[in-house]
Design a protein around this nucleic acid. Structure first.
Lengths: 150, 150
DNA sequence: AACGTCAGTTCCCTAAGGGAACCCCGATTG
DNA sequence: CAATCGGGGTTCCCTTAGGGAACTGACGTT
């Protein structure tokens, strides 16, 4: 429902949620990333209601995460990731890793990712963008930044 | 609303959404991580309805992401991250980085994170857990894994 | 001219969020 | 020992958003 508006909060997490925090949005992004670019494909694969799919796609396009482009002279479009949207795939990869670790159980992960660079099936690991060492929950101190208390 | 059940899908992203995909959940997690551990603190800081906060906390406890522990002989509790929950902070840090990059605008990020190891203000970067090289949207091929098609 | 396809729209029904008031329990106060 | 307080929820009502199925509109094709 989320009637509360997260976009005005002085928090990058809240603002990000305003873009992809609604139900289905991350799954729509996942599918588009995986090459399901058309309305009918997305609707069939997700089982989402057409109404909600329309709303989500419009929102993601408005936010500059997806781009709607015609692929025919008939009114047909497909949705592709913008650079901003491709950057969001980082988030999907971290979700995948967490789900693989904590929720996959005995059967193992449903999807594997092969890293082009090394050729191995692997997941992501978080590193400090500055020094390259691991960076997780207990490795950082949060402090107010320039855009604080909006 | 999310009446559709994501937990049964053969996708670690969908399963993860079942745990923290509901509105407010990531913000609750952020606050608990930041040291706001009690019901009243969370309610006041977030402005969330008490009803929904109760629901979210129960769900996060049920999922093993938070632990409810008494801090007084009166019926008083506080919520703390489990190991499973601390691992989810990775997700928050990636959201922070994305929001900082794409949504913060002129004023700059509202919160900065100092990395203990190097002492610098920095964000996270994604690396392959196997070879240590960068790993982003276009660096991987998805393939069916052992737990596919549940 | 009839038909098919993609990409939505419309409508109704139910379920979930917002908000405010209320409640319970143990500790403190007079 | 009754009155009060404060944390941590419940309950109730209202509004909004999701699910599902039917309908529409703009093109092509036969």
């Amino acid at each position: 429902m989320q009637r509360t508006d997260f976009s005005k909060m002085a928090c990058s997490i809240a603002r990000t949620l305003d873009v992809i925090g609604e139900p289905w949005s991350p799954l729509v992004l996942r599918d588009v990333w995986a090459g399901l670019n058309r309305f009918e494909q997305l609707q069939a694969d997700l089982g989402i209601s057409r109404k909600v799919l329309t709303e989500r796609l419009n929102h993601l396009v408005d936010q500059g995460v997806l781009e709607r482009r015609p692929y025919d002279r008939r009114p047909r479009h497909e949705y592709v990731l913008t650079e901003k949207g491709a950057d969001l795939v980082d988030l999907l990869m971290v979700m995948t890793r967490w789900g693989d670790k904590w929720l996959a159980g005995e059967t193992g992960p449903p999807v594997l990712y092969r890293h082009h660079t090394c050729g191995e099936f692997s997941g992501v690991d978080l590193r400090c963008a500055h020094c390259g060492e691991p960076m997780h929950a207990n490795d950082v101190d949060p402090l107010p930044g320039p855009g604080a208390t909006a």
